[in-house]
Computed example of a mutant assay.
Amino acid sequence: MTVDHETVSLGAFEFQCGETIPDLELAYETYGEFEGDNAVLVCHALTGSAHVASQGRFEDSDQAYAWWDDIVGPGKAIDTTEYFVVCVNVPGSCYGSSGPPSPNPETGEPYGPEFPPVTVADWTEAQRTLLDELGVPHLYAVVGGSVGGMNVLEWAKRHPDHVEKIVPIAAAGRLDSQCLALDGIARRAITTDPNWNGGDYYDGDHPDEGLALARELGHVMYFSKSSMDRRFGRRAATREAERAFPVDPAGRFFPYRDVESYLDYNASKFVERFDANSYLYLTRAMDNYDLASGFESDADALAAFDGDALVMSFTGDWHFTTQQSEALADALRETDTDVAHHVVDSDYGHDAFLVEPDSVGPPVSDFLAEGIGGNAVSDTVEVETEESDFAPVHNSLFSQ
Score class of each variant (00 low, 15 high):
residue 78 I to T: 03
residue 43 C to N: 13
residue 28 Y to F: 13
residue 6 E to Y: 00
residue 70 D to R: 08
residue 70 D to F: 01
residue 71 I to T: 11
residue 21 I to E: 09
residue 65 Y to P: 12
residue 20 T to R: 15
residue 7 T to C: 10
residue 32 G to C: 10
residue 28 Y to S: 05
residue 72 V to G: 06
residue 16 Q to F: 00
residue 9 S to P: 02
residue 50 A to I: 04
residue 74 P to K: 12
residue 35 E to I: 08
residue 59 E to P: 12
residue 57 R to V: 15
residue 71 I to M: 10
residue 26 L to Q: 02
residue 22 P to L: 01
residue 51 H to Q: 14
residue 7 T to D: 01
residue 32 G to T: 08
residue 62 D to N: 15
residue 15 F to P: 09
residue 50 A to M: 10
residue 32 G to H: 07
residue 19 E to K: 13
residue 37 D to A: 13
residue 33 E to M: 07
residue 49 S to E: 06
residue 14 E to K: 12
residue 29 E to S: 15
residue 33 E to Y: 00
residue 76 K to D: 05
residue 30 T to W: 00
residue 48 G to I: 09
residue 43 C to R: 09
residue 51 H to F: 13
residue 57 R to S: 11
residue 54 S to Q: 14
residue 37 D to I: 10
residue 20 T to V: 11
residue 26 L to T: 02
residue 36 G to I: 07
residue 55 Q to L: 15
residue 26 L to C: 01
residue 29 E to H: 10
residue 66 A to F: 03
residue 18 G to Y: 02
residue 18 G to L: 03
residue 27 A to V: 03
residue 22 P to W: 01
residue 51 H to E: 12
residue 34 F to C: 12
residue 62 D to E: 14
residue 31 Y to R: 14
residue 69 D to S: 09
residue 76 K to C: 09
residue 10 L to C: 03
residue 12 A to M: 00
residue 27 A to L: 03
residue 6 E to N: 12
residue 9 S to H: 12
residue 13 F to I: 05
residue 19 E to I: 00
residue 30 T to Q: 03
residue 13 F to H: 11
residue 78 I to G: 04
residue 60 D to C: 02
residue 61 S to Q: 04
residue 18 G to A: 06
residue 62 D to H: 13
residue 56 G to N: 10
residue 45 A to D: 11
residue 8 V to H: 01
residue 58 F to C: 14
residue 32 G to V: 06
residue 22 P to T: 00
residue 13 F to C: 09
residue 17 C to L: 00
residue 24 L to P: 07
residue 12 A to L: 00
residue 75 G to D: 04
residue 31 Y to T: 07
residue 77 A to W: 02
residue 60 D to G: 08
residue 15 F to T: 02
residue 16 Q to I: 00
residue 22 P to K: 02
residue 43 C to H: 03
residue 57 R to I: 14
residue 29 E to A: 14
residue 69 D to H: 05
residue 12 A to F: 00
residue 28 Y to M: 04
residue 33 E to A: 13
residue 21 I to N: 10
residue 23 D to C: 05
residue 77 A to H: 03
residue 46 L to C: 06
residue 40 V to T: 05
residue 17 C to N: 13
residue 24 L to M: 10
residue 40 V to P: 07
residue 56 G to K: 11
residue 16 Q to L: 01
residue 29 E to F: 00
residue 71 I to E: 02
residue 27 A to G: 11
residue 35 E to G: 14
residue 77 A to T: 02
residue 15 F to Y: 12
residue 76 K to W: 07
residue 12 A to G: 09
residue 44 H to D: 07
residue 24 L to C: 03
residue 53 A to R: 11
residue 11 G to R: 01
residue 69 D to F: 01
residue 46 L to P: 04
residue 36 G to Y: 02
residue 56 G to E: 06
residue 64 A to P: 13
residue 17 C to Y: 00
residue 78 I to A: 03
residue 34 F to K: 11
residue 42 V to T: 12
residue 38 N to Y: 04
residue 17 C to Q: 09
residue 50 A to V: 04
residue 73 G to C: 06
residue 73 G to D: 01
residue 40 V to H: 04
residue 61 S to C: 04
residue 42 V to Q: 09
residue 23 D to E: 13
residue 56 G to D: 07
residue 32 G to Q: 10
residue 34 F to T: 11
residue 14 E to W: 00
residue 44 H to P: 13
residue 15 F to N: 08
residue 65 Y to G: 15
residue 10 L to T: 06
residue 28 Y to D: 05
residue 48 G to H: 08
residue 27 A to P: 08
residue 74 P to C: 10
residue 28 Y to I: 04
